[in-house]
């Protein structure tokens, strides 16, 4: 598959500060690519350089074959951009705003279709100024879609969405990907990245500290499995069990968690111990750490590296 975006040794400095510090990656056409990373990691700086909003200090960048610093109108006609934060003409209605921005594009989605896609049917003729925060964010998203873009940039698109709206926008993004559109997004929601992205890159301090599919990151970071269950009474005698386990045990009143590199053996010990004593372990679950655990582990490692 052809690369939609190719970036080599990208650097962006503000005075002495290096907001982006030598980043390289490439994103395929039709891929959903997510940037993760703590506040100030350089996600917005990176994505806005790709959009043509900021000039880079050095490095090579190609987006849909354009250099975003000089791509101009032809390039922007194929972009859909949802900025992390930017105002909307408050005095106009949702429909008027969509109609206005849409008119600049060569390929246009019908206004009503876009309003439906973001679930603003009931608010189409209300002024933007009267919308709630999450509703305004949906207008942002709609404005990123009116030009029927080949490449969509979403900088924290679902911040402020209620859970239903978030699910719907996931569906929306899945659909866009299904149509072969390329999506570049940033998010602080790990479940969002896990659900949507084919690949993620974790930025920290302007560098990519990890990249790969969500599954790869998870496996690379956490080799341990967590076993949790609830004891029937607070004073159930755990003593003889504890000695036989390989994992670390933590507990708060009846809730017990065991994090272990050897889940099979530990689980066998636990269940046989419980059966012997005739105890039913409520809510027994075995789970591998999710992307969030992997992510936090990664950043914690980074922290100690720095110091």
């Amino acid at each position: 598959m052809a690369a939609a975006i190719e970036v080599r040794d990208l650097v962006k400095t503000y005075g002495p500060a290096r907001a982006v510090d030598g980043v390289s990656f490439s994103i395929d056409e039709g891929e959903v690519f997510a940037f993760l990373g703590p506040n100030g990691a350089g996600k917005t700086t990176t994505i806005e350089i790709l959009e043509g909003h900021r000039e880079r200090t050095s490095g090579e960048v190609s987006v849909l074959g354009f250099d975003p610093a000089t791509g101009g109108r032809k390039m922007r006609d194929r972009f859909g951009i949802v900025l992390q934060s930017s105002g909307i003409d408050r005095e106009l209605t949702v429909r008027e705003v969509l109609d206005l921005y849409r008119s600049a594009y060569t390929h246009r989605r019908p206004v009503d279709e876009v309003i439906g896609m973001v679930g603003l049917e009931g608010k189409a003729d209300d002024r933007v100024a009267t919308l709630s925060g999450g509703q305004k964010r949906r207008v942002d998203l709609a404005l990123g879609l009116v030009g029927d873009p080949d490449l969509i940039f979403l900088d924290e698109p679902t911040t402020g969405f209620d859970p239903g709206a978030r699910r719907r926008s996931w569906e929306l993004i899945d659909n866009l990907a299904g149509l072969g559109r390329t999506v570049v997004l940033t998010t602080h929601y790990l479940d969002e990245a896990e659900h949507l992205a084919n690949r993620v890159a974790v930025l920290n301090g302007g560098r990519i500290v990890a990249a790969g599919t969500p599954a790869e990151l998870r496996d690379a970071a956490s080799t341990e499995t967590s076993i949790t269950f609830r004891l029937p009474t607070v004073d159930s005698p755990l003593g003889d069990l504890l000695g036989s386990l390989t994992g670390r045990v933590t507990g708060r009143s009846r809730e017990i968690e065991i994090v272990t590199p050897a889940p099979t053996a530990d689980l066998a010990h636990i269940t046989s111990w419980a059966v012997r004593r005739g105890i039913e372990l409520e809510g027994l679950t075995v789970s591998k750490g999710d992307l969030e655990d992997a992510y936090l582990g990664l950043l914690a490692d980074e922290q100690t590296d720095v110091e």
């Binding site: 109108r73 951009i81 900025l83 105002g87 909307i88 003409d89 404005l143």
Partner: peptide, 12 residues
């Protein structure tokens, strides 16, 4: 408000 920045990101 960032409206001009938004406009600048469109092909207008």
């Amino acid at each position: 408000e960032g409206i001009l920045k938004r406009v600048r990101g469109t092909p207008l």
